[in-house]
């Protein structure tokens, strides 16, 4: 009994370690052989960037049905600086981290807010935009503060910063309805299935202007969050290149016009880690 138990206790961590090794992204190992992602990208001649194309104004498809939006244009600038082609990979919000850790993309630029929880799994570049999370709803619905959400049904996109902020701050009795992407969240609001949604400030203005019949308005700011590009954690050279290039693009005033075009506001400064 004692022996078999010891055997079991010994085997369990070994099995767990084996499983962990199996599940560890192979991309990381592949990189050791091929060097940093920056070398892989240059050799490949294509920069693969994960963007959710269902998240206006960050990722959308334009009138000719090509990928467009703020994040896509930031990705274009990065690819230009590197002298490679850009391949936009459409991903849903919940797959941003798996797409990175499994090596499906080189970079995720997809309204990706910096959170301490996510920073355990991936690395963040310096900020590309500082956004607000706001609650919006029809004018007729009284919803002046976060406390007034109690007893109301509020929509939010699953595993986004909006979701994290709402889940943390909502008073007991708030019925949080989670959807898989912003398209569904917006539709729930437009269809009246939820009384309000928590979404990015940039998107809120656009939704309100597009649906005058509902008379939507911004109710209150839930939180404020800088957004950045996401990278694999173990790739410091790549991280350094992305940060350097973002710094150059900002000081050369190439990012500011994009903010003006897509967000309607320009950040006074982009916070940097140092």
């Amino acid at each position: 009994m004692g022996f078999s138990r010891r055997l079991w206790l010994g085997a369990a961590p070994a099995a767990a370690a084996g499983a962990a090794a199996l599940l560890r992204p192979a991309a990381a190992e592949a990189q050791v052989a091929a060097g940093s992602t920056i070398d892989t990208v240059v050799k490949r001649g294509t920069l693969q960037v994960g963007v959710s194309l269902g998240t206006p104004p960050f990722g959308i498809t334009n009138a000719s049905m090509e990928p467009d939006g703020y994040d896509v244009n930031i990705a274009k600038l990065l690819a230009q600086q590197l002298g490679v082609k850009l391949a936009v990979v459409d991903i849903v919000a919940a797959n941003r981290i798996p797409s990175l850790t499994t090596g499906k993309v080189d970079l995720v630029i997809s309204s990706f807010s910096i959170t301490a929880e996510r920073a355990k799994a991936i690395a963040y570049s310096n900020a590309v935009y500082v956004d607000q999370q706001v609650a919006i709803g029809p004018k007729a619905t009284a919803m002046p503060t976060i406390a007034s959400l109690a007893g109301k049904r509020i929509g939010v996109t699953r595993s986004t910063t909006n979701d994290i902020a709402l889940t943390k701050q909502a008073p007991p009795g708030t019925e949080i309805q989670r959807y898989d992407d912003d398209a569904s969240t917006n539709q729930a609001l437009l269809a009246g299935q939820v009384q309000g949604i928590v979404t990015s400030g940039a998107l809120a203005a656009a939704i309100a202007s597009r649906s005058p019949a509902l008379a939507l308005e911004t109710k209150f700011v839930v939180s404020e969050a800088p957004m950045a590009a996401g990278l694999r954690r173990d790739d410091l050279e790549w991280l350094h290149w992305v940060n350097t290039t973002l710094f150059i693009l900002w000081t050369n005033k190439q990012i500011q016009p994009l903010q003006q075009q897509w967000m309607g506001v320009v950040n006074s400064e982009l916070p940097r880690f140092g």
Partner: peptide
């Protein structure tokens, strides 16, 4: 399959609905 980024009919519908606001 849209969940793994396969651009089939449903995902395309979401993308178009989101950019037109006409679900």
């Amino acid at each position: 399959a849209s969940i793994i980024g396969f651009r089939e009919l449903t995902r395309a519908g979401q993308i178009v609905a989101n950019v037109t606001f006409q679900p």
